[in-house]
């Protein structure tokens, strides 16, 4: 049996008076490339925040790498690229090298400096995302797609086994979205990094993902992309709560 990287059982979560997630049972097997789709306000980001430990569930259990989340300590195994990553202060004076180094800050720990080995890791992570020639450029001088690659590198530098991305392609042009998915694909296949991706690019997703999960407060669908494409329009609009043009919008 393949290892479960994330396993959620009967998870419920409510914001003040809004039930955001109902009875979520959900697993991310090792090595999968999972796309998480669903309408806005459907609880996608909440689900990820629960996995990252930013929010605590009210009911149910969450296991990470087989360990209950309360006892889980190896946060380095999980990399995260936030939705907000590309809304950072573009005038911030930091080079690519400096930005990627932040991925190691927590791992290195307080009161310790980066060693030569860490610096090599940083260079290697930047190389993996194909941005080596920009190592000493200011991050603000790069294009949106390039910046997004740098944020991936920042997550990769601590050698995560699971990489979580929250709508990473917002604000990236179509051509670069394609390249971006190619990069994710190769990370998944060659480096065996498990990926969990929130996205609206359902069209592109079906070409790359191994699993697709639809979430709108409850889990509406969990299957492979083929099954997802075979869902009838009726099913989808029911699930999104309105007739759908988002999903049929193909890149």
């Amino acid at each position: 049996m393949t290892q479960k990287i994330v396993s959620m059982k009967q998870v419920n979560y409510a914001y003040e008076n809004k039930h955001a997630l109902k009875n979520i049972n959900f697993e991310v097997p090792k090595g999968s490339f999972m796309g998480l789709v669903g309408p806005n306000g459907g609880g996608k980001t909440t689900l990820i925040k629960l996995i990252l430990g930013i929010l605590k569930s009210h009911q149910g259990s969450i296991d990470l790498f087989g360990t209950p989340i309360d006892k889980f300590k190896d946060w380095n195994k999980i990399g995260f690229v936030s939705q907000k990553a590309n809304s950072f202060n573009r005038g911030f004076p930091a080079t690519v090298n400096e930005v990627v180094s932040m991925g190691l800050t927590a791992k290195v720990g307080y009161f310790k400096l980066f060693t030569k080995e860490h610096k090599q890791k940083i260079a290697h992570a930047v190389e993996q995302v194909g941005m080596s020639e920009y190592l000493h450029e200011n991050i603000g001088d790069l294009s949106g797609g390039q910046q997004q690659r740098i944020f991936i590198a920042r997550s990769l530098v601590s050698d995560p086994e699971l990489l979580i991305l929250d709508e990473p392609t917002v604000g990236v042009d179509t051509e670069n979205v394609q390249k971006f998915y190619d990069l994710l694909h190769s990370l998944n296949e060659k480096k065996n990094i498990t990926l969990l991706l929130i996205t609206h690019d359902t069209g592109t997703m079906t070409h790359h993902a191994t699993d697709i999960v639809c979430l709108n407060k409850t889990l509406h669908f969990h299957g492979n992309p083929l099954e997802f494409s075979n869902l009838s329009e009726k099913d989808l609009s029911q699930f999104y709560g309105h007739p759908l043009n988002v999903v049929t919008h193909n890149h």
Partner: peptide, 15 residues
């Protein structure tokens, strides 16, 4: 430096 650049990321990483 990390907190100044991206507070959310810093907090998620355990700073």
């Amino acid at each position: 430096f990390m907190l100044s650049f991206d507070e959310e990321h810093a907090v998620v990483s355990g700073i």
